[in-house]
Amino acid sequence: MIARNLRKRFGAERVSFLFVDLIGQRLVRLTPAVEGDAVEHAEPVGLRGSVYDIVLQSQRQHVEPDGQGGQRVITPVTNRGDCIGVLEVTLQYADDTVLRQVGEAAHALAYIIVTDRRFTDLYHLGRRTTKTSLAAEIQHQLLPSASCCEAAQFTLAAGLIPADDIGGDTYDYTLDRDTLHLSITDAMGHDTDSALLATLLVGALRGARRSGCDAALQAHHAHQALLNHSRGLATGQLLCVDLETGMCRLVNAGHPWPLRLRDGIVEEVKLAVNLPFGVSAPTAYRVQELPLRPGTG
């Protein structure tokens, strides 16, 4: 639909969408089917050091001669900070008005993809440029639908490495009116059993969070879920960030200290550490306060 629209409005000669694969090392070029051809064509493209890499990192449109008298226009396809891919178009003429409208088309494409990928596996299929383990498959289904999120007060980015062979590691987040909720957890082990443990853990945390529980009660529910089902242990950090004041209230359950980037210096934040979730011992999870300020990472 987007390709047809660009051809009709601007006489675009070549239109393709390139999206980032599961492990973040390649792009997969999707070229719309042309008349007389029933299928779309997928082509893997190297990402690192390419012009596409520059566009994704800078989030700026790139224009260059195509070597045949036209203009090659590469535009980021992004939704609220979630870098989905790039839209590549070849045009014979591209002034500022045309470039702005191509940018608007790329923005519309991002919304279309975010909506459509809830109902089809085609995007998931296209992103699989390597074989994925069963544990990794389970883990990825536990993650939020977008690995990045932006608002006026913050930018959040997360990922699992290596993305094709993981087990036990998860992250989750949600954005309320005035609070950012974030969890980082690591279930014991690195196989399918740890992925199943992570499923129980994330389910308990989400259930508590969606019931209006604060970080302390979320930790309690997660701890009890692991105890009640005798599934093992997990470490984690649960954070609730007040977007008006910048105050972060958090619980550390046996997890490594976080790193903070401030004024160009990276340092560990030496928090009090509670026992991991699922430890069969009297446990009270302590909520700690960590003030955040603009520019902190």
Rank of each mutant, 00 (worst) to 15 (best):
T245W: 09
L217N: 12
L233N: 02
C240I: 00
D191W: 05
L200P: 08
S211H: 10
Q237S: 12
A195E: 02
L226E: 14
A195D: 03
C213I: 00
A195H: 06
V202F: 08
Q224Y: 09
A208N: 08
A234E: 06
L201I: 05
A225K: 05
V202S: 13
L205Q: 13
C213V: 02
G236Y: 08
A222M: 14
V241M: 08
S230P: 00
D242P: 04
S230W: 13
S194I: 03
G212L: 11
G236S: 08
H220R: 12
G189N: 07
S194E: 06
A208F: 07
T199I: 07
A234W: 02
D242H: 09
G236R: 12
L239S: 07
L227W: 08
L196P: 01
L238F: 15
L197P: 00
T245L: 08
D242Y: 04
S230G: 04
H190D: 00
L200T: 13
N228I: 05
L205F: 11
G212F: 11
A195P: 03
A198I: 00
L226H: 12
L217I: 04
L217Y: 02
N228C: 09
T235V: 15
G203V: 02
G207Y: 00
L243C: 02
L243H: 04
G203S: 13
A208I: 01
A195L: 05
S194Y: 06
H229K: 08
L239K: 02
A204H: 05
L197R: 07
L243I: 04
V202M: 15
L239W: 14
A225S: 11
R231H: 09
Q218P: 01
A219S: 15
L226V: 10
L201H: 03
D191R: 15
A234P: 00
V202T: 15
